[in-house]
Structures are given as structure tokens and as C-alpha cells.
Amino acid sequence: MKADQEKIDLQAEIASPQPISIIVGDRLCVHCGYNLTGQSIFRESHYDLLIARCPECGSVTSLQDYPSLGRWANRWAGVAAGLWVFLLLAMWAGSSGAIFGISMATAMEASSGPFRSYIDDQFQEWKIEQEALAANNPSTANSATNNTAIQGITLPTGTPAQAQVFFRGGGLYTNFSKWWDLQDNAALIKQFGGWRQAVDNDAFYFWILLTLLAFAMGCFWGIALLKQRRRGLLIWASLIIATSCVFAIFAFVDWFTTDAYYPRSASEHVIAPPILVLSIAFAVIPLFTGVLLGRPIARRLTRILLPPRLLNSLSTLWITDGLEPPHLQSSR
């Protein structure tokens, strides 16, 4: 008797309702939390209620809602939104900082190569010349070109020649900035054999890291800024690059306002600025690619890694680009 009644009810339910609409937004099943987006809405015949059935747990969800009167729901929503905005701002600064940081590392590494040694050698030659001149002309014996005299330091008798060179050249560089101001940077690079020789090519290994990181960050932003279309995403990526450029300005100011006291800093003053600009410009390619490909990659990966049952919780990834939610695609 009971079984018959069940059968009749089931038949009535199957026969009577025709879908009158489809859920297009996010609406969770009250029993299991399944996202009902894409499910059909029926007019139930007995109570004349609008209902949808959860395809996972089978339970009926009423579609008639009343606003929640509790204040805490809105408060928690506000807190969550605030945290999300804070996270995005932090990530913005982090992304720009990371691009700037790796570009800066590339620039520093590029300037620490053979050109630095060349500057050092040139300076040592100049010093030897100056010391010889000073020795020939006693009136300038205590001039600024003599390191040991200036510093008031006398090297102990018997100090090996190599150590003397190190002490005078590598340890103090007293007149380096004075010598450096007399140099023509472009001519110095030309003498050395051009930019290709001057830049330490090992620095460009950092570009592998830069590519991976910028692409990963691009993917993150492509997914995080769900409401943005391609244009908006590209504008955001440009903002990240612009912020990196702002960070770079501080480095430029530091390079152009301070004197070079060592061959290393002199080499940085010449080589690092263009390499820094080049690295930041290079980061544009993986960042923009990541931003544009982030969502398709995320969709593809979730499709591969997750069983269809769990996919619909991430259906926003599809809906936001005007695509059908995955569980509806697979049901066809």
C-alpha cells in the first residue's frame, strides 16, 4: 500500500512539473551545499511552490527566500570582503615587488661580471700612474692620490706586494669616485668591447625565474579578478608593471644621486639601469600571458584533477566567462 502510494507520488511528480526557468546564479542546496546553478526550476503541484532538486543529494530546495534579519551575516560578509580587498592589495604590492626584485637581481648580477673587473683594472692603472707622478714630483707626495698617506696608515714592512695591492685597491678605493667622475661611461663600454661583453650573461638565468613567477602571478590575477574581462585584466597587469616601475624609480634615484665609491657600484651605475628596465619590460610578456590564460588553465586543470561531482563548486570559473557550468556540459 505504502509502496503504491510512493509510486503514485513519484509518477505525479515526474509527470506534472515542467521546468519553468533555470537557476543562473549561485544557489546552494540547503542540505549538502551543492551549487544548484544551471538546475531547472519547477512549480510544485501540491503546494504550488517553486522548487529545484539537488542533483547530488536529491533533496528539494525551496526557491522562495526572505532576507536574513540577523546582523551578523552582513557583518561577516563585510569582514570577508575587507579581508579579500586587503589580500588583493597585498598581492598587488607583492606582485610588483617580486617583478621589481627579480629584475633588480638580474641587473645587479649583470653588472657584477667582467666589466666590474675591467673598471677595477683601469682604476688600478690610473692609481699606479698617479703614484708614479707623485713620486717624481715630491710636492704632490702627500696628495690625494696616495692612499696610505691619506689614510694615515703605513703598511708594515714586508707586507707582500699582492696584499698591498689589495689593501690599496680592494680595501680602500679612496679616490675612486674622483677617478670615476672623469670617465666617459659610453667610451669605457666601447673600449671594453660593447654591451654584449660588458653584461654578465649568467644574469639572464634570473629571467627563467622571472618568467615562471610573472606567469604564475598573471594566472592568479586572471582567476582572482573574476569580474574583469580581458581589457580589465590587461589594465590591471599594466598597473602591476607600473608599480614595479615606481619601485625602479627609487633605485634610479639612488644610482644617479650617489657617487660610485667602488668598481662594483660604478659598474652598477652603468649597466644596471638599462638591464633593470629591460627585465621589467620582459616581465610584461609572461604576466600578460598569465593574466589572459589564467582562467582557461584553471578550468582545464580543475576538469582534469577534480571528479565532475566536485566541479560545480568552482562553476564561477565558467559562468564568469559566459560558458556553461561544467556539470551541465558533461550531462549532455
Binding site: L28, V30, H31, C32, G33, Y34, D48, L49, A73, L310
Partner: peptide, 20 residues
Amino acid sequence: KASVRRPNYYSIKYKSLLRI
């Protein structure tokens, strides 16, 4: 006219969180 009493808002959010 029949209408459905709204289930607890937080329980749905909790279930949604569990699913996520």
C-alpha cells in the same frame, strides 16, 4: 498559501564551506 520557512542561513554557509 504554503510558504517555506527559511532554513538557518549559517548552516548553509557552513555546508558550503565544507564543500569548498
